[in-house]
């Protein structure tokens, strides 16, 4: 049985804006349309899409914060909006942008409060807290008030908080946003291990495609409220090779560079943009350029979600299964 079932879900918002001095017109915006998918227990699914595509709206419907305009949702056997409190016992939620912890309380007190609110059995709580303290390296932070934690520390604290009551499903909304490379990597390790060891179903939204690459065997892409891709990461790659972009500033303006492993996209004075396969290393490419030109500065742009979506559209409709 699927732990998350979404069938033909629509979600519209009425947006009012002023037109003229007193008159107000309202338009209906369909944030999510004809959304259907299901997630099996233990899956780790990446949910990606550009800003405003409907990711947060979907998560809010799955947690019971928002009521769908049409269609049906089931999470862990509950209808989210109708059985919000009962569902809360079975899910964990992390909003990357804001903490769900209490600002003025030390982490340990926040956790103790959650233990009582969720009525976690004492031994289970001790066990979980010990595990997460160890894996997320929370030991030195437990006595620190949440407001004094750095972003990365707070995120670890939030993730432990979302898992303390052994939820069946965890929603992570941008869990790696704003974290440095090392913190991101540690967090991914933790999430992978938790998913594997505990069988927790994870639905994660992100702007960082590396999160998806490292964590998720399945990706759903939403754009303008519609699910435009649902399949494996390989399937997504199969739609066209992911490319990174090397931006080089040469000492002097030059004609477009001619390097065999890359394609020059754009030239703007001394600055040039070169696309190359995401899996390839930038080092040989740079060496090739440096052999003929003097390089002043460089930057590498990771593939972004907008590129991915563009590729989906250029290769035809989403595979449906």
């Amino acid at each position: 049985m699927s732990v998350i079932e979404v069938r033909d879900v629509d979600r519209s918002f009425v947006v009012r804006h002023r037109s003229g001095r007193l008159r107000r017109t309202s338009t209906i915006v369909r944030a999510v349309r004809d959304l259907s998918f299901s997630v099996e227990a233990g899956e780790m699914v990446g949910y990606i899409g550009p800003n405003g595509a409907g990711k947060s709206t979907t998560i809010k419907m799955l947690t019971g914060i928002l009521v769908p305009t049409a269609g049906s949702l089931r999470v862990a056997g509950h209808t989210p909006y109708a059985e919000r409190a009962a569902l809360a016992q079975r899910i964990g939620v992390v909003f990357g942008q804001r903490t769900t912890l209490w600002w003025d309380l030390p982490l340990r007190d926040s956790y103790d409060l959650l233990r009582r609110i969720y009525r976690i059995p004492a031994d289970r709580y001790r066990e979980n807290l010990a595990t997460f303290t160890d894996l997320l390296d929370l030991g030195p932070l437990l006595e620190t008030p949440v407001r004094q934690l750095s972003l990365g520390q707070r995120m670890r604290g939030d993730i432990a908080a979302a898992l303390l009551h052994d939820p069946d499903v965890v929603y992570l909304d941008e869990p790696t946003i704003g974290l440095d490379v090392v913190s991101k990597s540690n967090l991914r390790d933790f999430l992978r291990e938790t998913n594997r060891e505990r069988g927790v179903t994870v639905l994660l939204t992100t702007h960082d495609l590396v999160d998806i690459e490292r964590l998720c065997s399945r990706v759903m892409v939403i754009d303008a409220g519609r699910l435009v891709f649902d399949g494996s990461l390989e399937g997504l790659h199969g739609l066209g090779e992911a490319r990174r972009t090397l931006v080089v500033d040469l000492m002097e303006p030059a004609p477009p560079l001619d390097v065999p492993t890359a394609q020059t996209l754009r030239v703007d004075g001394p600055r040039q943009w070169l696309a190359f396969p995401a899996e390839a290393s930038a080092a040989p490419l740079l060496a090739a350029i440096a052999a003929t030109h003097e390089v002043a500065d460089l930057a590498i742009l990771e593939p972004n979600i907008e590129d991915v979506i563009k590729r989906i559209y250029s290769t035809g409709p989403a595979p449906s299964d």
Binding site: G64, R84, A85, A88, Q89, T100, I117
Partner: peptide, 13 residues
């Protein structure tokens, strides 16, 4: 501020 959302994912009214 959006803190109402956080309250709605807890098992209390």
């Amino acid at each position: 501020l959006g803190t109402v959302d956080q309250m709605m994912v807890r098992p209390l009214s």
